[in-house]
Amino acid sequence: MSTQQELRERRRTRLRFQLRRKAGGRPRLSVFRSGKNIHAQVIDDVAGRTLASASTLDKSVRESGKTGADKAAAAAVGKLVAERALAAGVTQVVFDRGAYLYHGRVKALAEAAREGGLAF
């Protein structure tokens, strides 16, 4: 029987393999979700550097909401990371949900990033 952590690691490995195949040189929008916060980064894997990032710990997002663990905060982070990515000259990305299911806060962040101007 597999534990929750092993299943999460298998999903992450499977997804990253598919992303490398299909990326075509595009940067990836990586999401990390914890119990209290959510973080997003636009990463250029070829150069090995972060182009843009945002999280619920940023001052602008923190002032607008009470908590970082809800869909509204995730949507705010999605819009903010889209703004910062567009300022860095990135318009197309590959969405890396990590080991998380595309549901709830992860989905809210992705939809807000799309509305903010990122294409994926």
Rank of each mutant, 00 (worst) to 15 (best):
R28F: 10
R28Q: 05
R28Y: 11
S30P: 02
S30K: 06
V31I: 05
F32M: 10
F32W: 10
F32G: 02
F32R: 00
R33S: 06
S34G: 09
S34F: 06
G35F: 05
K36M: 12
N37F: 09
N37D: 14
I38K: 15
I38P: 05
H39Y: 13
H39R: 03
A40V: 04
A40L: 12
Q41D: 10
Q41S: 02
V42S: 05
D44V: 01
D44L: 04
D45W: 01
R49K: 01
R49D: 14
T50F: 04
T50R: 00
T50S: 08
L51A: 13
L51N: 04
L51T: 01
A52Y: 07
A52G: 01
A52I: 03
A52N: 00
S53M: 09
S53K: 10
A54E: 15
S55H: 14
S55I: 04
D58N: 08
K59F: 14
K59A: 15
S60W: 11
S60R: 13
V61L: 11
R62L: 09
R62C: 10
R62W: 13
R62E: 14
E63M: 06
S64C: 04
G65M: 15
K66R: 12
K66G: 10
T67L: 11
G68M: 03
G68P: 14
G68T: 11
A69L: 02
A69S: 13
A69F: 00
A69K: 11
D70S: 02
K71F: 05
K71N: 07
